[in-house]
Write a protein that binds this DNA or RNA. Sequence first.
DNA 1: ACTAGGTGTCATAATACTGTCACAATAACC
DNA 2: GGTTATTGTGACAGTATTATGACACCTAGT
Lengths: 243, 243
Amino acid sequence: MEVKKTMQAVKILVVDDEAPIRDMLRMALELRDFEVLEAGDTRQAYQQVVDNSPHLVLLDWMLPGGSGVQFLQRLRKEDLTKQLPVIMVTAKHDEDNKVQGLEIGADDYVTKPFVPKELIARINAVLRRSGTLTPDAIITVDGLKLDIACHQVSIDEHVVEIGPTEFKMLAFFMSHPERVYTRSQLLDHVWGGNVYIEERTVDVHIRRLRKALEPSQPDQFNYADLIQTVRGAGYRFSVKAAG
Amino acid sequence: MEVKKTMQAVKILVVDDEAPIRDMLRMALELRDFEVLEAGDTRQAYQQVVDNSPHLVLLDWMLPGGSGVQFLQRLRKEDLTKQLPVIMVTAKHDEDNKVQGLEIGADDYVTKPFVPKELIARINAVLRRSGTLTPDAIITVDGLKLDIACHQVSIDEHVVEIGPTEFKMLAFFMSHPERVYTRSQLLDHVWGGNVYIEERTVDVHIRRLRKALEPSQPDQFNYADLIQTVRGAGYRFSVKAAG
DNA sequence: ACTAGGTGTCATAATACTGTCACAATAACC
DNA sequence: GGTTATTGTGACAGTATTATGACACCTAGT
């Protein structure tokens, strides 16, 4: 048995009419584990936005026909896409354009040519600022899946009802397997900072979590067994132990 | 149950007296997900324009009876169709015709024989230029349909009365299913940016939305169930859950 | 001005979750 | 085996969170 952590990739839509530039950007972005969507014109771009809801748009300033500006304006007009972060990319070093782009609602501005590193930095900055970047971790141990973005635990695709504290505790355990944590440490990490709670309370929540992980069918694997008691020390989420 | 996002197809009216050519065009266009309307003469063409309001017209230069030119002139005279983009298609390589066509008001000009790719490119260009292309997203979950352009929600083809805020919220949820959003995030995405509103207000609108989605007949599916509350976290629009 | 619908806020009811305790069960150690 | 320390368990009452109905305000259309 083994722990798998999956980061739901941040999707970035690259809008540029020149394929070579798209390729270059794709390479730079995929190296950083971004998922890249492409569009060569505004129609495709809009289609991508609707179909795949990217987390961020890299938009070329100069697009044939309707320029990128129009596309940006449209995004900003529509309720659904008002929040979508956009970084303008342009060959023009013109300051006026920069101002105009930012006024319309671009979140940042990059001028060609640029070093990939700078672009990545700006992307991260924008994502951080906009709060879009909620690293959607999905942690998996065999059939046990914990999805933080969906705030959901499931066993073999079957949703498990679980309380908030139990959820946090399981999330903590699954991201720190094998290691033993004292009740006091668990209070710190799961409950957070300064709480004045009996240490024995941890036991109760451990029990609730175990109960939640028990299989509905008796012949299924019991994931509750992964939560081990270490007498005199605390608890441990062990993946090696079973399976 | 499953989320389907649909781009309301761009309707293109093909006006040509030769059926084989219409077929050829239909094939090329439908491959690109355009919706194709056909007309063999100007009378049919006009009828199609009135009945189905296409987004663009592909007009053959040489039509029996009234030529394509006359049809185009008529379109340009009428207020309702002044803006309708028209691409002339002709077998004549005659430059004069080209000029004449453009003067009357054709937006572009293609000579037979042409490669489909070029035609598609020109269509996209014209649509982009004219701004006519407003691909209207429609999101569907089973019998629940949300049409952004029409600003309308319907359940099993039956229109649901719904307020603006509820509409936006449903639209947001349907384009981001499964994921949990905090009240604060919902305020950001649905209300937009900087608003100073109580978080509890979200609850009230959630309730209004749920109420709106309740079935009129008690035996119908209750789409309100798709909106789940996640205690301590926020709300989630889950499609997997039910069905 | 008047209506009608939509919005945000509040008070209160309805729930779900928590922390704690008492006691049972188990392990460790003599 | 007997004793003690530690953990498991069920119950319960308090607490926090959410659902709901009511209301006053606002805005647009008449």
